[in-house]
Design a binder for these strands. Structure first.
Lengths: 180, 180
DNA sequence: GTCGAAACGGGACGATCATCCCGATTCTAG
DNA sequence: CTAGAATCGGGATGATCGTCCCGTTTCGAC
């Protein structure tokens, strides 16, 4: 790969990450190209479709999150900790939140394409939390995803909101719950 | 209003209600007109914008739901019952679910325009449930809306899924929770 | 330094829709 | 029955975007 092409690719990726995070998925590709100081053709050569671009952006964060999940595995409350981490990550990333909420692209597909399967990690943490009785046994992975999307659908301008929602959901997921 | 115009308006409204419920908000106005057997001009004359059409569709259901809420007021667990009713209503109505999830139109505005303020009802039920200690005191109305959206974002082809999610959220909202 | 290949820029294209407009049609009061 | 006004149908219009294409520029191996 030519050096200039490599630079441009990295630049587009960085700009796209920033824009997707702050403005969501609906920003036009033209705008990303403009802010990156390249032509639209350059973007679409490196990332044939908008979804490819989004998947590439996601790839970096996925790696980190996967490692974090692995580090947590085995410790008590790992599922709840990782759940909160994921929600917080998405709360700070509008594009990711939209994708998780179903609007736009398929996060699972992008994650799978990435190779770092955060989905599988969360699933595993869920299963062991259920075995140890930390989480109601009837809950499924899609349930968790939906509840996560719910937390993200709120207006998060007040950071306490997210904590409250995560607390509600976490409490509801426990087989044995406790007072607020 | 001319008799034929009245008939057409009612017909468009009925068809739109059916289509919005089964296929969501993204269906083109042309398609609604086509299935109603009228021209697009007829639709846009009765309902200047797509959002007006959606608001008119909502109006009918809002009336029913508001009355249900009023009937419940005062009885124990009213908040939880009404919450479940609302979620079930939206689960059977893809357009409403999308609107509640933030994609598309502003439900609150449509409801307010309708005069039947389901929002206010749910808010009142929440407040009295908090006074009686049924619901955590720190919860806000937007929190409830977000959690509702979460329940609806799941794949609901299995009806048990909705029950499970409502149970989790209800349990999480209680000041004092209980086993699954 | 030269030249072929790779990459670039950005405009063209095509698809999707909501909304508006206007000539044709239908209703209804008198 | 008739005239005029309300209504109708559906194509035109305009906006938004993602994707593709191609003439031009730049890179880098030799």
């Amino acid at each position: 790969m030519r050096a200039d092409a490599q630079r441009n690719r990295a630049r587009v990726l960085a700009v796209a990450a920033e824009i997707f995070a702050s403005e969501g998925l609906s920003v036009p590709v033209h705008e990303i190209a403009r802010r990156a100081g390249v032509g639209t053709g350059t973007v679409s050569r490196h990332f044939p479709t908008k979804e490819d671009l989004f998947a590439a952006v996601l790839l970096e964060r996925m790696k980190e999150l996967s490692e974090q999940a692995d580090a947590l595995t085995g410790s008590p409350g790992a599922f709840f900790t990782f759940f909160a981490t994921l929600v917080r990550e998405a709360a700070a990333n509008r594009g990711l939140a939209e994708a998780l909420g179903g609007a736009g692209f398929d996060v699972e597909a992008a994650a799978a394409q990435a190779g770092y399967d955060v989905t599988a990690r969360l699933n595993a943490l869920l299963a062991s939390a259920q075995e140890s009785g930390e989480v109601r046994p009837d809950i499924t992975y899609p349930d968790v995803k939906a509840l996560m999307a719910g937390c993200l659908s709120a207006d998060l301008s007040d950071p306490a909101t997210l904590d409250r929602l995560v607390a509600v959901v976490s409490g509801g997921l426990r087989g044995t719950a406790r007072d607020s």
